[in-house]
Design a protein around this nucleic acid. Structure first.
Lengths: 235, 235
DNA sequence: ACCTGAACACCGTTCAAGT
DNA sequence: ACCTGAACACCGTTCAAGT
């Protein structure tokens, strides 16, 4: 009697029927459905209709696969966020920062791979340097010293990344579990008159949101424009 | 013949010999050695000299245990970072922000539990509200409107948290693997004259460090002081 | 009421094969 | 050269006990 139980076993794949690109593509597909954390080798293998161990011929460790994904993600990110010069340096920088944030927001996987998993150890992309050079040039032309220009761009960059990361982490855990303390949260108007009023108006504490992002961005840009003004007076 | 193989088996613990506090203490000890990610139930059980499943009597899920740890971490954090009023509101806020950052830096577990794992879903602590109230009061007294005072403090809070998280994520992956591209990192002085010069002087791009933290903090405080000045003129 | 091992379904990774 | 299942050591969690 033939065993039907074996019927659903996958057929053996041909030699060369798996490619690095195919694996990475599949990995992004799985990550899109299950998030980067949910991406596992068995899950990916099932998605690709491949033996789990076959993946290990192309990527010796899962970490190698994630590195390859991160490289591709960085490419996407760089492509999506060029630095566009304009007549108004403030608006150029502002739009640039907004675009960066928006890219991370609309694509959490980029955020997880690039920011949270951390490209920090490795060198910055060539594309990142080009953006930096362009932005610094714009600021220098506007009247900043190269050093101040660099610090300004670095500050915008970190501000944007920080906002993106915090927001992503909020989403991650916020979606999972509301978890409210019973009553403890109530603000006593007697002892805390100021914030009792403000929180009723909808203000939120310690939350990275649009308002907060724009506010910080404004502060940085304003600081830069003051530096320019001060230089103009001195020169 | 008695079996010696069984000799190293743990003795059964007495009833009531395990307590919630003991478990949480042990969990922090393990986390201190192996990081929060490295904290596993079997590892914790071994550390406590307890059967793995015993822990599940006190915490139905690992997540519950992590929540308990986070609560304690929040207590520590709140205790370590009170808002101290002073005659100079700028220095008060600056010191407050520095203290918050320093607390996270010197205690990565706090960072992992509070910021990265995310207390975001739940309500803010009572202590957090008290700090907020005090800070807002200080700023209002300095001449800000309650709304501006709130935005300023929120901005400082998010700036500090963002800096702490990014720095922590840097450390996490940076320590694991240096990973440098061969040559690709070199900046061509021909096409990128500005940053070629600056990076040689030790500037670093996209890195959350002391300089960047202080710079952003300055921008926020400067913005606040301008708001105060503008109000003073108008009033 | 509290503590426990066996057992299950998952995971990353290695090894010794198969073709 | 490429694909594979069996196997190992880990993990979180459940269950049916033991005391």
């Amino acid at each position: 009697m033939a065993r039907q139980a074996v019927a659903d076993k996958r057929q053996r794949r041909q030699r060369g029927s798996i490619s690095v690109d195919e694996i990475i593509n599949g990995a992004f597909e799985v990550a899109n459905e299950a998030s980067v954390d949910g991406l596992s080798m068995p899950l990916l293998a099932k998605h690709l209709d491949v033996g789990v161990t076959s993946i290990y011929w192309y990527f010796r460790k899962k970490d190698d696969l994630l590195n390859a994904m991160t490289d591709r993600a960085l490419g996407q990110y760089d492509f999506a966020t060029p630095f566009v010069e304009g007549q108004d340096w403030q608006e150029s920088l502002r739009n640039h920062a907004r675009k960066m944030r928006q890219t991370f927001r609309s694509n959490p996987i980029l955020c997880d791979l690039i920011l949270i998993r951390g490209t920090f150890g490795r060198e910055a992309t060539q594309a990142a340097f080009q953006k930096l050079e362009k932005a610094v040039a714009t600021l220098v032309e506007a009247g900043l010293s190269p050093e101040d220009a660099f610090d300004t761009y670095a500050s915008i960059s970190v501000h944007t990344q920080g906002a993106a990361v915090l927001e992503r982490l909020q989403d991650r855990s916020g979606g999972a579990e509301p978890y409210r303390r019973s009553g403890t949260s109530v603000i006593d108007p007697e002892t805390m008159p100021l914030i009792a009023d403000l929180t009723e108006k909808g203000h939120r504490i310690g939350i990275a949101d649009d308002i907060n992002f724009e506010y910080g961005l404004n502060c940085i840009l304003e600081h830069a424009s003051r530096l320019i003004a001060a230089r103009g007076e001195a020169g």
